[in-house]
Design a protein around this nucleic acid. Structure first.
Length: 174
DNA sequence: TAAGTGATCTCT
DNA sequence: GAGATCACTTAA
């Protein structure tokens, strides 16, 4: 069983999409070489009121893809050295996305993009085979208990309310 | 614990 | 245009 996740998967509430992405696969193809990794850590960024979200201060050139249709890649560059990979969720005009923080054997959002060669060339592209980066359901079924929810990382500036919200989903290690 | 690094945003 | 900030990583 191997099914590419389509826009309809992502066009749902962000927290649902985030939780269901754990156990799905991130597939990268470049120069004809394909690799697939199971997602193990993601975070939800949900709507215009989320103080930790890039969209909190409204639409800007960088974040406008978050306001667009679901299932688009949002790749931005930060700290002068790291690319961050997100996929947009929810309906058009509602800014939301899921940050991909880790996959099996690669932990850390910056390390992940470096390992898979993910740069802003992919920003705003749909997460499809044509873009070279997409998501697949490969039939892995995780028990709900196998997924842990915690506060998000690195967003203390957003205040305790938003940093405590359990918007981070991590696959528990056995 | 702090440096590194540069795009992005906010304010002049 | 200037200055601050940043959804991080690594080396110490």
């Amino acid at each position: 069983m191997r099914r590419v996740l389509r826009r309809s998967f992502f066009d749902r509430p962000t927290l649902i999409v985030a939780e269901e992405l754990i156990g799905k696969f991130l597939v990268r193809e470049r120069d004809g070489v394909r690799s697939a990794h199971m997602l193990t850590e993601v975070e939800a960024y949900d709507g215009p009121k989320d103080r930790a979200s890039h969209a909190f201060r409204g639409r800007t050139p960088r974040n406008s893809v978050m306001f667009g249709p679901a299932g688009a890649l949002y790749v931005y560059f930060t700290y002068g050295m790291h690319h961050m990979l997100n996929v947009t969720t929810g309906p058009e005009d509602y800014p939301a996305a899921v940050l991909i923080r880790g996959v099996e054997s690669i932990v850390g959002p910056g390390r992940l993009t470096k390992a898979l060669g993910i740069t802003r060339e992919l920003d705003r592209l749909p997460a499809t085979k044509a873009s070279g980066l997409w998501f697949e359901d490969r039939g892995v079924v995780l028990a709900p208990r196998a997924i842990q929810r915690t506060g998000r990382i690195g967003i203390a500036y957003a205040g305790p309310l938003w940093s405590k919200r359990r918007y981070r989903f991590v696959r528990k290690q056995e």
